[in-house]
Design a protein around this nucleic acid. Sequence first.
DNA 1: ACTGCTATTGGTCGCGTGGCCAATGGGGTA
DNA 2: TACCCCATTGGCCACGCGACCAATAGCAGT
Lengths: 210, 210
Amino acid sequence: MTSSPPPTRIRKPPEERRAEIVRIAARIALEEGLERITLRRVADELGVRPGLIGHYFPAADDLVSESFTHAATKERASLLPGEEAGLAPIDRLARFLTRLTDGDYADLSRLWLNARHVSRFKTGLRAAVRAQEELTRDALATLIDEGVRRGEFTTEDPLGVALHILVNIDGLGAYTNDDVPFDHPALRDMTITTAERLLDLPVGTLRARG
Amino acid sequence: MTSSPPPTRIRKPPEERRAEIVRIAARIALEEGLERITLRRVADELGVRPGLIGHYFPAADDLVSESFTHAATKERASLLPGEEAGLAPIDRLARFLTRLTDGDYADLSRLWLNARHVSRFKTGLRAAVRAQEELTRDALATLIDEGVRRGEFTTEDPLGVALHILVNIDGLGAYTNDDVPFDHPALRDMTITTAERLLDLPVGTLRARG
DNA sequence: ACTGCTATTGGTCGCGTGGCCAATGGGGTA
DNA sequence: TACCCCATTGGCCACGCGACCAATAGCAGT
């Protein structure tokens, strides 16, 4: 029998508390799914009472949307950094694709699958997904366009290539919940080889630079 | 005020009733999503009491899995018929891809997206999804292999081509819940042009035969 | 016509959810 | 030091869910 902790009441500035809530909720979304974001659950993890979460998010769905946006934004910044990284487009693309292929981004794929399905029922989340798709699409298209201007890539339709790559990524991501993933060489490097073909790069270039 | 209908109790042979339940549940899954399959909901549509559904499906999750299997099987039979259709492999492939691209198969894409996400939480559904994936994969690979043997297609890796096509289909399917679908020529015919390229078919062949 | 099996009913239970609201008290401000 | 705003609490409500069970009645076989 543990003694109940003293009901210390900690009062925080609203923006700080709000950010804290979103951060926790985003973690839950990534690890366990958007449907696990619950007033009570978030409150428990934060050591506050459920009512407080409701105070900051009178509509629980808004917390879900915002959490998704938060998680997706953070992960995108990590996977697909802008020019500030000081890397050439071809290297940024290589990093992006190899990390996505090899690295442990199963949680991220799961989150996108999750959000894309749940957005069927929640209009707010639907808008958030749409916004994140747009940002990712634009970032990738811009990266490719930049590479073309530098002479690293060759294509007449940077946006088309970006879309093609993203379809491959999302298609492979659809299988992340399989307990025994189907293995085949064609699947393993699909996004990388697709990118190399569409950008007129010698086979192996991207993996070598990743 | 409508008078309550006479409580006529209709007793049906178990297999018939069971089939009826699965059929209704599959329709709900296709139209509104797997999470809308509820003992009460199915009972309402069938004009029976919720307890009866529980009688046939002591674990509600089993009804969900079975409904998915039912819906997926039916749709596959329609989209990807076997040799009994009397069509050449190239024509069967053309029909499959054009129908999937143009036709109204949004419900089916949504169902797969739905099932792939929900299978994260339900082991029974996960197994069902896996089984259906395997059936579809094998059907498509067999179709391609047959086409290769007849000289209609050219590839050294029929299964790899099937996987590639399926990744494209599933990737595009991930966007079915977007309210304003992003439009771009690269997306429009992606599966068809991919198939033509991988099978060494002249551009336009498949669409012409669809 | 009777009987037995079981499909079907009707009701109850506990759980987790989001939403709502009056009371409380922390902490910056006058 | 006293005050007051509002972040925070505690408690409640209605809802929809799956599970469970004893009672009822359709219908096939005798």
